[in-house]
């Protein structure tokens, strides 16, 4: 369960979004839409706990969120297996073979990650989500550099995750083949700046 109420977030000290509210129940997915720079990444980072919210509340079960950013955090000199083993150990989960299987990485398991193609790396990055064992996935443009087949593969993985009672919050422009996913357009939540002279404490800086 992920519940976001009246969330406002800022980038570089400037308010970007306000009054964003949504809720995800087990098995649900929500896709964030909006033009570049509208605050999708900022919102996701706020939900993931990387930056504080200006206002509002994010409630989720403790230790339930797994975050995947633009960058995959892959170490080139480690093999695919070593990369996944590391994250499995960090998240205290057992076994990476299911993740390798689902993201179609089994054949590449012992290859050094620096020798993977961009799409393969991305698949490895997404396989990391599977080894976290966390129910709420927060995904920032998960399909960048994936080919059509891999997008379909990933769509299937997300669907399987939802089928097991998982949740997904993602920013993406590509149709993942998830018709059940709800869509939230952030254009309508753009933060309005306070009018000058209204007497806010630090208003001179906003």
């Amino acid at each position: 369960m992920l519940n976001v109420q009246g969330l406002a977030c800022a980038r570089g000290g400037l308010p970007l979004l306000e009054q964003v509210s949504f809720a995800l129940a087990p098995g649900q997915a929500l896709v964030l839409r909006g033009p570049n720079g509208c605050g999708k990444t900022t919102l996701l980072r706020t939900v993931a706990g990387l930056q504080p919210a200006l206002a509002g509340e994010i409630s989720a079960a403790p230790d339930s969120i797994a975050y995947a950013a633009h960058a995959d955090g892959i170490k080139g000199t480690l093999s695919v297996r070593e990369n996944l083993d590391f994250w499995a150990a960090i998240y205290g989960t057992q076994g990476i073979s299911a993740a390798l299987e689902q993201m179609n990485l089994r054949a590449l398991a012992d290859r050094a990650a620096q020798n993977l193609s961009a799409g393969q790396k991305r698949r490895l990055g997404l396989a990391r989500l599977l080894v976290t064992g966390r129910p709420v996935w927060v995904l920032d443009e998960p399909t960048v550099s994936l080919d059509v087949a891999s997008v379909a593969l990933f769509g299937a993985v997300v669907r399987a995750h939802l089928g097991q009672g998982g949740m997904a919050l993602m920013a993406t422009h590509i149709d993942l083949g998830l018709p059940e996913a709800e869509i939230l357009d952030l254009t309508g939540y753009k933060a309005r700046l306070p009018e000058p002279g209204t007497g806010g404490f630090d208003e001179a800086f906003l």
């Binding site: 797994a66 975050y67 955090g73 892959i74 998240y91």
Partner: peptide, 16 residues
């Protein structure tokens, strides 16, 4: 290096 490849963000959201 961890900052550049994004591992640091991921570590910061990890249960450590």
């Amino acid at each position: 290096l961890d900052f550049e490849d994004g591992s640091l963000d991921l570590l910061a959201t990890a249960p450590v």
